[in-house]
Design a protein around this nucleic acid. Sequence first.
DNA 1: TCGTTATTTAACGTAATTGTTAATTGAATA
DNA 2: TATTCAATTAACAATTACGTTAAATAACGA
Lengths: 109, 109
Amino acid sequence: MDQLSAVFSALGDPTRFAIVDRLLREGELSAGEISATATISPPAFSRHLKLLREAGLVRQRTDRQRRLYSVRPEAVRQISEWTLSHREFWEASIDRLESALEQEMKNDG
Amino acid sequence: MDQLSAVFSALGDPTRFAIVDRLLREGELSAGEISATATISPPAFSRHLKLLREAGLVRQRTDRQRRLYSVRPEAVRQISEWTLSHREFWEASIDRLESALEQEMKNDG
DNA sequence: TCGTTATTTAACGTAATTGTTAATTGAATA
DNA sequence: TATTCAATTAACAATTACGTTAAATAACGA
């Protein structure tokens, strides 16, 4: 539970959230590919990646000179489980027609 | 999406995560009830609550002298939607891990 | 009205975070 | 072997975050 708060803290920085969201959409990427697009320097990215690693959000593997990063599925599932453990609370309070996902979850549950 | 990162940032502090988690479990609570249990001072709590309000995670209403706080369901749903929008990624990967572990156990037994 | 209760805001110090550039590490290649 | 490429770590400055105590605000009850 304090672990989860560390995960949230890691995602609380916009740069890091963007990294994780992109890794989720595009899959494994190298540090260079991640830092190529944005405004901040490679060292700054490297430190964000280190923090994400330490929070358990991403893993790193080495391929030749490059470090390839990908999201650790368990971390995202952990967040999902927390929200779903309180699903009854927030689901009941929200207009059902607004969310297709909500319906989808009911079918699954 | 940058909104979501602000929500994560708010939950990234252990004290604030504990507040939100407790409000989810116990429902609406006053500022006093929230600050009663813990080690830090009421002013410190008050500022955490303000930050949670500004991040859209909780709402406040007034009852006599007290301020009653509760979680805004939309905020939690927003997090849930983000995780579920990538569910295919993490669910598939975890399934793969689980079947790998199963296979491993068979080999051992 | 006056004091009490509930909570917030103000003022301030310290620790943590985030960025930069320079230096370092380690693998690939001429 | 020397050089280049990919990424990280080191050192430093600026900003933000978080805690404290003291003061302010606002509603209640004697």
